[in-house]
């Protein structure tokens, strides 16, 4: 603020100076001052113009939401604020699945990503891509669990790179064809993808072996998307924040013994408040209109 205040004050001085009939001031002081003033305004103006153009370019790149990050990646917003674009995760990937985004890839430039349909994450047990990360954009603790002696042990099954989503309209299993390519390919078979056996109502006598994805187990590795036989994959990975909804903490599954424990950590008031909720149900029953 200080830097911006000064030139403004000097501007008034210059304006006054120009109307001032005394010539001595003008010849000695003004050209230098005016020069300085013009230069400062020019610099500020150019910095603003450049800054706006620059931030527009960045904002456009940032707004590309369809990006699948390596395992252990911190949430996207935090990820692009900490990734230093060194490519050491890319180097470590033994399957060359990870790529550093080029300008034309429509992803935040220079950051690592993978494309499930071409080369999914193979879910290496030792997760070689995560430990080399120097900046913390890939966080080991997100893909580790406590081992027997209390030390953290890497476990790729904890990764949450995305979530597989099925298009039932194009998935041929949902049309009654016996395809279980995704189910068989899934590294967490019977956990992340299960097959639901149902009857095809249309014929009344055929079975349908329909795949279903379970978000609590799916790591978003994308092997299913790669395996899918339809022309364009009918099971595909989306970033979890795009693929998943969120229900309020109010909805407790009473039939799940531990679900209520979630409420213990909740600090906010989760009680419903509407104009009517203040009254007791009995008042409502006693009202005239009823």
């Amino acid at each position: 603020m200080q830097g911006r205040g000064r030139p403004a004050r000097m501007m008034t001085e210059t304006t006054i100076g120009r109307d001032d009939p005394a010539p001595a001031n003008r010849t000695n002081m003004m050209p230098e001052r005016r020069d300085f003033l013009i230069k400062t305004v020019k610099s500020l103006g150019l910095a603003t113009a450049g800054g706006l153009e620059w931030s527009g370019f960045i904002e456009e790149g940032k707004s590309a939401p369809l990006v699948l990050r390596p395992p252990g990646a911190v949430p996207e917003k935090q990820f692009i604020a900490s990734c230093i674009k060194c490519g050491m995760c890319v180097e470590a990937c033994p399957y060359d699945a990870l790529i550093l985004a080029k300008p034309e890839d429509d992803k935040p430039i220079g950051t690592p990503y993978f494309t499930a349909r071409t080369s999914p994450c193979r879910m290496c047990k030792d997760i070689p891509c995560v430990p080399p990360c120097p900046s913390g954009a890939l966080d080991k603790t997100l893909v580790s669990e406590k081992g027997e002696n209390g030390a953290l042990v890497l476990n790729i099954n904890l990764a949450k790179m995305g979530l597989a989503v099925i298009d039932r309209e194009t998935c041929i299993a949902y049309s009654g064809i016996q395809c279980d390519a995704c189910y068989r390919a899934c590294p967490l078979i019977d956990k992340a993808i299960t097959v639901e056996y149902t009857r095809i109502e249309r014929t009344g006598k055929h079975a349908m072996l329909a795949p279903a994805v379970h978000s609590n187990a799916c790591t978003g590795c994308g092997v299913c998307e790669k395996a899918c036989v339809t022309q364009k994959a009918s099971i595909f990975i989306l970033p979890r924040e795009l693929a998943m909804g969120k229900s309020s903490i109010r909805y407790v599954k009473g039939w799940e013994s531990r679900d209520e424990e979630r409420l213990k950590d909740v600090k906010e008031d989760v009680k419903t408040k509407t104009p009517r909720s203040g009254q007791s149900p009995v008042d409502y029953l006693n009202q005239e209109e009823f």
Binding site: W54, F57, K77, A81, I84, I99, I109
Partner: peptide
Amino acid sequence: LSAVLGVAAFEWISPIGALHRGIIYGMGFG
């Protein structure tokens, strides 16, 4: 800009980054 936009602003447009990243990991439109 880094503070406002939440990314390393110069790294985003840096021709230095584009060049060495490109040589090491693939240039593309860089």
